[in-house]
Structure formats: structure tokens, C-alpha cells
């Protein structure tokens, strides 16, 4: 078949895809070409194309500061903790909801748990602010008082945020993952449990040897999807919730917020692009590695 016959037969397909292709070109592919900015010292008077090449100076500079290490560490550690929590907690929730005798109550709980998923990060930052504001916040004015503790300045206290952020993230996402796992559990054929009961397996044993193994493909797929994004942080969570408090940067600055700040707050587009490209490249490698790994474990669950 030649291209011409193809075009005649499938021209309508190209028309159908045209808006999408156009979008991808502008939204994704042209910006990819724009990564050359990372290798330039952009001077506005000369324009991007005519600005002098500095090759790896922006990268050298990025890795010379302690920032590169801090943002990489924060991004990875937070995301790893998120992935683990997003696996354990929802699986546990889903199993428990499934076992609950009162189905109406189970539905109600599920609905409430899911609610947080629909709130924007701006709303979440308001909710957190309501608790943590240092003079009016509920924690300082009530809880700390009941506990007989001195009020703390939560938005300056670097120690608590590494715990707080995973809690907030889990609280926000647990509903979504619970629904997915619950669906998978409900999909499990009752015959498996029937057989297990005949073998005299206790409830706990059934969960361990039937439910969890059968959930494994779902767990792997959902986790893999997150691992592929392990180098990308949830910008809203790290930007909105800590309210851009300077003293918290050592524990809240992630690659995404760094890219944003060096671009918008400092106007250094070369450095910002360098950090962005670093993120894209490492992210790219990590997707491949995790996919390769999953392929070895379970071929069907691999992304590609």
C-alpha cells in the first residue's frame, strides 16, 4: 500500500486527529525544542535565538549550589513516602470497607473519604491555615492549650512538615485509590473465597492469600504510574499549602517549585530551564527503569 492510498482511505482519521496533533505540537513538542534555553545565557535584547551559548554553565551553576541536592532529595523522599502511603492505606481501607457489614455505612464512609479528592489545593491550604495559623489557628489556640504546650509557629517549623505533607497528601488522595482498589476487590470471583473457606482459612488468611495476591496487578499498575512521576512533585501541595514560607524551603522546596521560583520570582530563565530539563531527563530515565523492572516481575502490567 502506498501513502496515497492510505491517505485516500484514512484521510478522515487525520482530520479527526488534527486538533489533538496541533495541541500536542504547541503544548508539548515546541516547548521540547525550547529546552535550548537551558544552554544559553538569555539576554532579552538579543532574543532567545541570538543569545550566546553558555552550554553547561547553567547546569554547573545549578549543581554548585546546595539547592540541586535539596530539591532532588525532597522530591524523591516525599514522592516515595506518598507512593507507599497511597498503596498501604487505600488497600487497607478498601479491604475494611469491603468487609463492613452495614453496606450503607460503607457507602457513606467511602463518599466522605473521597470528598477531599475534589477540593482544590487552594481550599486545602485554607483548611490547613485554619488549623496552623499561629495566632488564630485551632491548633495553637485550642489543642496546644489543652495539652499545656507553648504555641508553635507552624509555618516556620521545619521539623513537622516532612510529616505533615505526607499526611495531607494521603488524606487528599486516599479516597481516589480506595475506590479503585475496592472495585478490584469486588471484581474478585467469590469462588476463591469459597474454596478458601472450605480449606478452613480464617478471615485474615483469606485476605493474605486471596485478596492481596489478586489485587497485586492493580497495585502494581497504580504504583508504577506513580513511580513514573516520582521526579515530578505535586506543585499545588508544595506551593499552596506551606504558603511559600521562606524558612520552610529546606523541607518544602521541590523541583517543580524551584523551577517556578527561579523563573517567576527571580526571572532567571536559563537556570529555571536547566532545572526543568534535569527533571525531564531524570524522570524519563526513571520511567524506563521502573517499567523495565515491572516487565521482569509481571509482563502484563508493564506500561510499554
Amino acid at each position: 500500500m502506498t501513502l496515497a492510498t492510505n491517505m485516500r482511505r484514512y484521510w478522515i482519521f487525520y482530520v479527526m486527529m488534527a486538533p489533538g496533533v496541533l495541541f500536542l505540537i504547541f503544548n508539548n513538542y515546541i516547548p521540547m525544542l525550547g529546552t535550548v534555553i537551558a544552554f544559553k545565557n538569555v539576554n532579552y535584547a538579543d532574543g532567545i535565538i541570538n543569545s550566546p551559548w553558555v552550554w553547561f554553565d547553567n547546569f554547573k551553576y545549578l549543581f554548585k549550589t546546595s539547592d540541586a541536592w535539596i530539591i532532588t532529595r525532597n522530591t524523591l523522599l516525599y514522592n516515595i513516602s506518598f507512593i507507599i502511603l497511597n498503596m498501604i492505606v487505600p488497600v487497607a481501607f478498601a479491604i475494611m470497607l469491603n468487609e463492613m457489614k452495614n453496606k450503607l455505612m460503607a457507602k457513606f464512609h467511602q463518599a466522605v473519604i473521597f470528598l477531599a479528592y475534589f477540593l482544590s489545593m487552594v481550599v486545602v491550604s485554607y483548611l490547613v491555615y485554619g488549623f496552623l495559623h499561629d495566632t488564630h489557628g485551632f491548633v495553637n489556640t485550642s489543642i496546644m492549650k489543652w495539652l499545656g504546650l507553648e504555641p508553635l509557629q507552624w509555618y516556620f517549623e521545619t521539623k513537622i512538615w516532612p510529616f505533615l505533607l505526607p499526611i495531607i497528601n494521603t488524606w487528599k488522595n486516599v479516597g481516589y485509590y480506595t475506590v479503585l482498589y475496592l472495585a478490584a476487590i469486588i471484581g474478585i470471583d467469590d469462588e476463591y473465597y469459597e474454596a478458601a473457606t472450605i480449606d478452613g482459612a480464617s478471615k485474615w488468611q483469606q485476605i493474605k492469600s486471596v485478596t492481596i495476591p489478586l489485587l497485586m496487578p492493580t497495585i502494581i499498575v497504580l504504583t508504577l504510574l506513580q513511580i513514573g512521576r516520582v521526579f515530578y512533585a505535586d506543585f499545588g501541595l508544595f506551593f499552596q499549602v506551606p504558603r511559600e514560607s521562606g524558612p520552610l524551603f529546606p523541607v518544602t522546596n521541590v523541583i517543580d517549585t524551584y523551577v517556578y521560583r527561579t523563573f517567576i520570582a527571580m526571572g532567571d530563565i536559563g537556570l529555571s530551564s536547566a532545572a526543568g530539563l534535569y527533571q525531564s531527563l531524570v524522570g524519563f530515565i526513571l520511567v524506563f527503569l521502573s517499567n523495565w523492572f515491572v516487565r521482569r516481575v509481571d509482563k502484563d502490567s508493564a506500561l510499554f
Binding site: Y61, F156, G246
Partner: peptide
């Protein structure tokens, strides 16, 4: 330029908190 950029970055983290007496 590089040093100045780095210092501005550090300032962004500390300066306001210090100068307003917040820390």
C-alpha cells in the same frame, strides 16, 4: 551574575522572616 543569583535565592528564604522578627 551567578553569585548574585545564589544570594538572592538565599535571601528569599531567610531575609523576610528575619527582618520581620518572625524567627
Amino acid at each position: 551574575k551567578a553569585e548574585i543569583g545564589a544570594v538572592v535565592n538565599v535571601d528569599k528564604q531567610y531575609l523576610t522572616a528575619l527582618e520581620t522578627g518572625s524567627v
